[in-house]
Simulated assay, not measured.
Amino acid sequence: MKQIRSWAIALLVMLTGNAAAQCSFRNTAFSSGEFLSYNLYYNWKFVWVKAGFASMSTVQSRYNGMPAYRASLTTRGNNKVDDFFILRDTLLCYNTLDLAPLYYRKGAHEGSRYTVDEVFYTYPNGNCHVRQHRQHSNGTHSWEQHSYTDCIYDMMSIFLRARSFNPEGWKKGNTVNFPIADGNGRTPACLVYNGKKVVKADDNNKYRCLHLSYTELDDGKYKRIVDFYVTDDNNHVPVRLDMFLKFGSAKAFLVGMKGLRNPVKSLVK
């Protein structure tokens, strides 16, 4: 029985891997064991207040018996701002080792609302099939599923993928388009390159960064969701994030990083 089970797992891995290959991408930016930490700041009545922390980790794990990257992102506001706005978000994704999406989950406690989004990816017959689940703030659940001939991503998987983009030759305004999924839909989205900028992190270092804007189509217009300032080297580590939220705006600044795959060549001395 053990041998039969092993053959079944091997067959599943082979079939899933072959089908997902169309949505794969080479990873040049990170390896298992990377950990990034950030300070969070909120804009409250035109004043920036230090109000929490965020962290992101990436490790090699397994998903349905196959090797996969497991990436998680947590944001935690502190007690200073809980009276004004509660922010407790946890994002999780599994991708194949060549970055095809497998699973995504976002649990969001924002203000008085708590929602959960999930996306389950499979790749039958060369298509990208997604099952999407949302737990609404009133506790009800909704499910839907769709098949697409093109690839579809979530916020975490596109972030992992984008870190391995090669920006050589990019000019200001260069745009990468892709569809994004959450718990109940598919939305056109894009990354826009805005040039380079030197950014000071909360580790007291300055880094030469690429400035990228993540936008989503909303009511016929592209709405800016977050600006990323990522190191201008092969790691493409986010040094600063500017987040445009429903309640206002927030920023995150890099505090520490360890387990990087490549040398940090973007440090400005």
Rank of each mutant, 00 (worst) to 15 (best):
M1G: 14
Q3F: 10
I4C: 02
S6R: 12
S6D: 14
S6W: 09
W7L: 15
A8E: 13
N18R: 10
A19I: 10
A20H: 05
A21W: 04
S24D: 15
F30G: 03
G33L: 08
E34W: 03
L36K: 02
Y38V: 11
L40M: 13
N43G: 07
W44H: 12
W44N: 06
W48F: 08
W48R: 10
W48S: 11
V49G: 02
K50D: 15
A51D: 12
A54M: 09
A54N: 05
M56R: 11
M56G: 00
V59G: 02
T74C: 05
F84G: 02
F84W: 09
F85C: 10
I86V: 14
R88D: 04
D89R: 07
T90L: 08
T90P: 00
Y94D: 07
N95Y: 01
L97W: 01
L99K: 00
A100M: 12
Y103N: 00
Y103E: 05
R105F: 04
R105P: 01
K106E: 15
G107Y: 07
G107Q: 06
G111Q: 11
G111N: 12
G111Y: 11
S112I: 09
R113T: 15
Y114C: 04
V116M: 08
Y121C: 11
Y123N: 08
Y123I: 05
P124F: 14
P124E: 15
N127I: 03
Q132A: 12
R134W: 02
Q135L: 14
N138A: 06
G139Q: 06
H141P: 00
W143D: 14
E144V: 12
Q145F: 12
Y148C: 05
Y148W: 15
T149S: 14
C151P: 04
C151S: 10
I152F: 10
I152K: 04
I152E: 07
Y153T: 02
D154F: 00
M155T: 11
S157I: 14
S157F: 15
S164V: 09
F165K: 02
W170N: 01
G173I: 10
N174P: 00
N174I: 09
T175L: 01
V176I: 15
P179W: 07
A181R: 04
A181N: 11
R186D: 05
P188N: 15
L191Q: 03
L191I: 09
L191E: 10
V192C: 06
K197P: 01
A201G: 08
N205G: 08
H211M: 05
H211G: 01
Y214H: 08
E216C: 10
L217T: 02
D218T: 09
K221N: 08
Y222A: 05
I225S: 08
I225L: 15
I225A: 04
I225R: 10
F228Q: 09
Y229C: 01
Y229W: 09
V230P: 00
D232V: 01
D232Y: 03
D233F: 07
V237R: 02
V239G: 05
V239D: 09
D242Y: 13
M243P: 00
F244I: 10
K246F: 03
S249P: 02
A250Q: 03
K258R: 11
G259E: 13
G259K: 01
G259M: 05
G259I: 08
L260N: 13
K269E: 14
K269Y: 08
